[in-house]
Design a protein around this nucleic acid. Structure first.
Lengths: 103, 103
DNA sequence: TCGTTAGTTCGACGATCATCGTACTACGAA
DNA sequence: TTCGTAGTACGATGATCGTCGAACTAACGA
């Protein structure tokens, strides 16, 4: 098995500007919404996005480095999770507010 | 007197991506924090910012067009207000979450 | 071992953005 | 009316960002 967690900021390293900037991009917001609907985690490739694989990888990296998502390997797949607890602990209400927006 | 409200989006025209993008910039976040501390409104020039007047005007326009703030004239001054009710109505918790971030 | 599959990394390119100085407008006071 | 003050509008410029294709890596199965 040997799943491995990709490098990500600790909770106290997360900056609100980076989080907001990460969420303020349509493709990344789509990813976050998909992750919010699947608390068990989602494999990146399963999310339907209007961009190529490399652009998708770029956005996932941006979200991970901002502290919005967490990603671990699972064979050839990479499963991503929304860091709900960390974000809710740091900015209570932010995530639910964003997700409540009717798209 | 004849105060005039500068053009801004209606509540149902506000897009969450624009709001997040507007909030995800350090100077603009400073402005929003200052407005949050002054519910009665703040004259733009009173906020201490590390940028010139023209850059300040640019950021205020961005915030206004995103629907984050409302600005009305008062003589030669322009007083800005945080659109708390609209934002709270659209994205409950978002603003409080952002403002709770220790800067 | 050899493909196949899932995903990343690396430039490159065009678009957007933050910043500035300068010129301009609007209001109030002398 | 003239002057000073508050703020905007207009380019211009350098930096950042989203996007892509191509090359690369890692894991699984035949």
């Amino acid at each position: 098995m040997a799943t491995k967690v990709l490098p990500q900021p600790e909770r106290d390293e997360i900056r609100v500007e980076a989080v907001l900037q990460a969420l303020g991009e349509p493709v990344r917001l789509t990813i976050v919404r998909a992750l919010a609907d699947n608390p068990a985690g989602v494999c990146c490739g399963e999310i339907e996005l209007p961009v190529t694989a490399s652009t998708r990888a770029h956005h996932l990296k941006t979200l991970r480095e901002a502290g919005v998502i967490s990603t671990h390997t699972d064979g050839t797949r990479r499963v991503s999770l929304l860091r709900r607890d960390d974000l809710e602990g740091l900015y209570p209400g932010l995530l639910t507010g964003v997700l409540s927006a009717k798209q």
